[in-house]
């Protein structure tokens, strides 16, 4: 592994809300890294700091102390403008409620991050269509979100998160609003994007969905208390039928 494989590094990240006696510690000295090709799940009870971790990792909120490093850039050293550019070019967010813009088609939703970055819509449509094809929705490119099922909307959101070569996907309960089978399909897509060279953090309370990750970290009271790492070869089963 080389240094360039490192997409995200949290180094001693702490986050406090409020001051003095009423201060609440949401994160307390969290160290976490995500490499290319790696999906890291974050699990923990409500209030354990999962969502705060994602917000800080995505540069949406600066930590009280510690450093967040995205693709080699120290977020604390970037201007607001540079930070916004980095977020647009390197990070893709996937939310529980999809967050698609209802008045835009699937293709326009996926193109949007590129257009915000100065691409013409004509130029942005090609990579956007590629991204939709990857999540097997190329034939729905001109549909509006209201014409798509929940699972299809979430797949559009994944396409939007990875369009234009953005490599770090930050997903907050992406399967929370989906039924079990559709949720699994969405995770399979997320997994395949990571296997194709992206990296990601998956915040979830669902054990079966967290199991799609290479590593699972457990948060309690803002601290990582344990980690589960899948071994390369399963010792549990003799394998696929021929």
């Amino acid at each position: 592994m080389t240094g360039s494989d490192l997409l995200l590094e949290l180094d001693g990240v702490s986050m406090q809300y409020g001051r003095g006696e009423t201060a609440i510690t949401a994160l307390a000295g969290v160290d976490l890294s995500v490499r290319r090709g790696e999906l890291v799940a974050v699990m923990g009870a409500s209030g354990s700091g999962k969502s705060t971790l994602l917000t800080v990792a995505g540069g949406l909120t600066p930590p009280t102390s510690g450093e967040v490093i995205v693709e080699g850039h120290w977020l604390s050293q970037l201007s607001a403008r540079e930070l916004a550019t980095l977020r647009r070019r390197s990070l893709g967010f996937v939310f529980q409620d999809f967050n698609l813009i209802p008045s835009l088609t699937a293709l326009e939703n996926v193109s949007l991050p590129l257009e915000l970055d100065g691409w013409t819509s004509k130029k942005a449509h090609r990579p956007a269509l590629d991204a939709l094809n990857v999540v097997e929705l190329g034939d729905r490119a001109n549909h509006f979100p209201s014409d798509l099922s929940g699972g299809q909307q979430q797949r559009v959101a994944i396409a939007r998160a990875v369009v234009g070569g953005r490599s770090l996907i930050l997903a907050d309960e992406p399967t929370g609003a989906l039924d079990s089978t559709t949720g699994e399909l969405v995770l399979r897509m997320l997994r395949s994007r990571v296997d194709a060279g992206a990296g990601g953090i998956l915040v979830t309370h669902d054990a079966r969905h967290a199991a799609w990750a290479d590593r699972i970290v457990f948060l309690r009271d803002g601290r990582i208390v344990d980690e589960s790492r899948a071994s390369a070869v399963s010792s549990l089963l003799s394998g696929l039928p021929a």
Binding site: R208, A210, A211, W212, I216, S228, A230, S231, S234, L236
Partner: peptide, 8 residues
């Protein structure tokens, strides 16, 4: 969770 990861 490790068991679940391996099965998945």
């Amino acid at each position: 969770m490790r068991t679940l990861q391996e099965l998945t």
